[in-house]
Design a protein around this nucleic acid. Structure first.
Lengths: 107, 107
DNA sequence: TCATTACTTGGTTATTTTGCCAACAAGCAA
DNA sequence: TTGCTTGTTGGCAAAATAACCAAGTAATGA
């Protein structure tokens, strides 16, 4: 694999990696319903606000969300809506896994 | 967030996490073109075969690929084709990021 | 000006991930 | 049987991640 191809997969992996955490996945899902401030996400997820803030900056660095400060609050919103397509397919995998599990148990 | 919701996002994150590595992303992309044996993937990626094997077992545990031994070789294939939808969207993010970068430089 | 709220950033510690080597298993062929 | 090839698994060291606390910044209101 040449250097350029390798870099292309590294770039793609960085975007996917940004979503590869339960809290960040929840944030993306929640932001798909509209913008949310950091404190709203903190209330929903229930972690320290510094933890929430760092997760959001991971999503921001990956180019998945954008932020906008208004008054005291910082609102985040999705930058690329197609991210939601992920959920449907991930759900398909999970359904297939559930089937596999029950088939394994029956054996 | 209640326990059940949390578990749902954890399950989803596990699937996405399995793809969140350049080599594993390459494998998924390559397997979308047809089955490949471990040694073919090793030749393309250029890592130790034990490393390749472990990456494949991560994808297998997540339910993304399946394996089939024939003779001396083990062939892997995609289990859920919709995984490919990811690539299109990830590409959109990268294109948007590239635009943002050049806009930033211009400033 | 001073306090308060909403975040971000730095630092620390604990956990997870990654990649290689060594050792082992399984299929095949001489 | 013996040797060779293909792949998996265990173990280890290095690197990356994650979560919290503490400290600092920025906007607002008393």
């Amino acid at each position: 694999m040449d250097v350029k191809t390798k870099q292309r997969y590294e770039a793609r992996a960085r975007v996917i990696k940004a979503m590869a955490h339960p809290s960040r996945l929840f944030m993306v899902d929640e932001l798909s319903r509209g913008e949310r401030c950091v404190c709203e996400l903190r209330d929903m997820i229930g972690a320290d606000i510094s933890t929430i803030s760092k997760h959001l900056s991971v999503l921001k660095d990956a180019g998945i969300v954008e932020d906008e400060k208004r008054g005291l609050q910082v609102f985040y919103h999705l930058r690329v809506p197609c991210i939601l397509n992920f959920f449907g397919c991930v759900e398909d995998v999970l359904v297939a896994n559930a089937r596999r599990m029950s088939a394994t148990i029956r054996k």
